[in-house]
Design a protein around this nucleic acid. Sequence first.
DNA 1: ACTCTTAGCGAGAATGATTCTCATGCACAC
DNA 2: GTGTGCATGAGAATCATTCTCGCTAAGAGT
Lengths: 140, 140
Amino acid sequence: MTDSDQHTAKRGARRMTKQRAAIVGVLSDRAGFASAAQIYDELRAQGAGVGLATVYRTLGTLASEGQLDALQQPGTSETLYRVCGAEHHHHLTCRQCGRTVEVQAPEVERLASDIATTHHFTNPEHTLEIAGTCATCQVA
Amino acid sequence: MTDSDQHTAKRGARRMTKQRAAIVGVLSDRAGFASAAQIYDELRAQGAGVGLATVYRTLGTLASEGQLDALQQPGTSETLYRVCGAEHHHHLTCRQCGRTVEVQAPEVERLASDIATTHHFTNPEHTLEIAGTCATCQVA
DNA sequence: ACTCTTAGCGAGAATGATTCTCATGCACAC
DNA sequence: GTGTGCATGAGAATCATTCTCGCTAAGAGT
């Protein structure tokens, strides 16, 4: 389910609608994470008539396609989304202001894999989230 | 179970009610994780008249006291709880059957700390979740 | 360009988990 | 035994997210 033949319209092909473009646009503009509700509000503010259901639907689709990064801030009940390269990475988030930094940690990849193997688990996937207080918030 | 000396009642102390004991009991019995709803059902089945609100309240309290371990299985919307030593650890979970193994990974501790420091974040905390397919489920 | 098929949309209802309200109850100190 | 106040419980309230279903429009085929 990849790449090369995007034009060769196959059965379940994705259509590029203005709504989808608008959602991606909003996400691209704001560098940080945004919740479905925030995106929805933003779109309304822009005058784009996009339904909430569509926002959720699209966000879900894009996330499963790997074009978005979805994460749940612990303590919150809502899911946050952010545009990101499809590359695997982890997050370092500030507890106070929510600022997020994407970090690569090759060691973790290997480690997670080793742990899985040790316990006879195959096809491992992992998530690492780090929270702390960023430099700016330490001063304040 | 590990009941130490709770008799030293300090101010604002937690009271040991039969409800709380029942909830901890249910959690201790089942080795794995349980959702609030499952615990609630279990308690009803045992004839204990415990309210759902109480289950949530107690679970939340215990989790923040570090007596329980709370985690959200990705893909699910409910939070799962499990008794655990207050020691920091990570989870390796089977995607099929949900079986969970607690793992220690000292390297991750250091790594997470390093990453935080590099980005000038202080007081770091982290979570590592690994998912895979366990030996049993690979056969099936 | 015109048409046809169907993925995608929108509004609101539905769902599911968790939290809140508040009158009553019970654990614990004295 | 008695008093005080945290804990409880039933149900309502909230919140995020998903579903329903008739309608719209993207893109392939002609």
